[in-house]
């Protein structure tokens, strides 16, 4: 049943022209950057450490694109009002909500893996040309990419579950990622407790745990709780 529901969520995403275009564009961008950055670094004569860490740079767009996919998964039924037919066919709102969150999580994983595979492929091509790679740095970067993918897709879904509007959530996430998060860097020391990047830093062991926890509570847990309540009670019309 869980598998059927999950497949259905992906079917929703991939059978509608607009959302298919978004998914394909995001995947192409991520793969392009993931493969392009090491090639560019190598061609510019960057050191081995930089080349090994190229995946982290390639994963930066994932913060936004992962969120976009999460938002799309959570809002598309409500945005186009398919929700009335869906809830008549499958009336359990908690099940629908849980499926959407799980779908987002898996989508985040898939996107992260795409980046890793594209980056590894590019590095393999380069290493056959005699270039060495620092395995330790590379593995650490792979962990970063996986964390970024999961965290940002979940965060996008969580906020979207509260707002239930595609444009509104997109604006929110863009403001948060491109304006609020950088602005909080200038508000040390308390600013880091609200910075969403603190979650990933804590996850990969490159930042303190407490700011990671407060940030995860603010940007993922709280929206998730509010979103669940909203999804269970909102009129479907």
């Amino acid at each position: 049943m869980i598998v059927t529901n999950l497949l259905n969520e992906y079917r929703k995403l991939l059978t509608a022209r607009g959302s298919l275009a978004v998914v394909v564009t995001c995947a192409t961008l991520l793969v392009g950057v993931a493969a392009g950055v090491p090639i560019l670094t190598y061609s510019l004569g960057g050191p081995i450490s930089e080349l090994s860490a190229s995946m982290a740079v390639a994963a930066l767009p994932l913060t936004i694109l992962g969120s976009v996919i999460g938002i799309l998964i959570m809002t598309m039924d409500w945005q186009h009002r398919d929700i009335t037919s869906i809830l008549v066919a499958a009336p359990s709102r908690p099940q629908l909500f849980a499926t959407k969150m799980l779908t987002s999580l898996i989508a985040g994983l898939i996107f992260s893996l795409l980046i890793i595979i594209a980056n590894v492929t590019a590095l393999l091509v380069l290493t056959t040309g005699g270039v060495g790679i620092d395995g330790k740095i590379f593995l650490s970067m792979a962990g970063t990419v996986l964390s970024l993918g999961i965290v940002w897709t979940l965060a996008g879904s969580a906020v979207a579950s509260v707002l239930l509007s595609l444009p509104l959530t997109l604006v929110f996430v863009f403001v948060q990622a491109l304006i609020l998060d950088p602005a909080l860097m200038f508000a040390r020391p308390w600013g880091e407790y609200f910075q969403s990047s603190a979650i990933t830093s804590a996850l990969i062991g490159q930042g303190p745990v407490l700011p990671g926890l407060t940030s995860a509570t603010l940007w993922i847990l709280l929206p998730l709780v509010l979103g669940a309540w909203r999804q269970f009670h909102r009129e479907a019309a």
Partner: peptide, 8 residues
Amino acid sequence: SAHHPGRS
């Protein structure tokens, strides 16, 4: 009319 416009 409540269905995704871009789906067949």
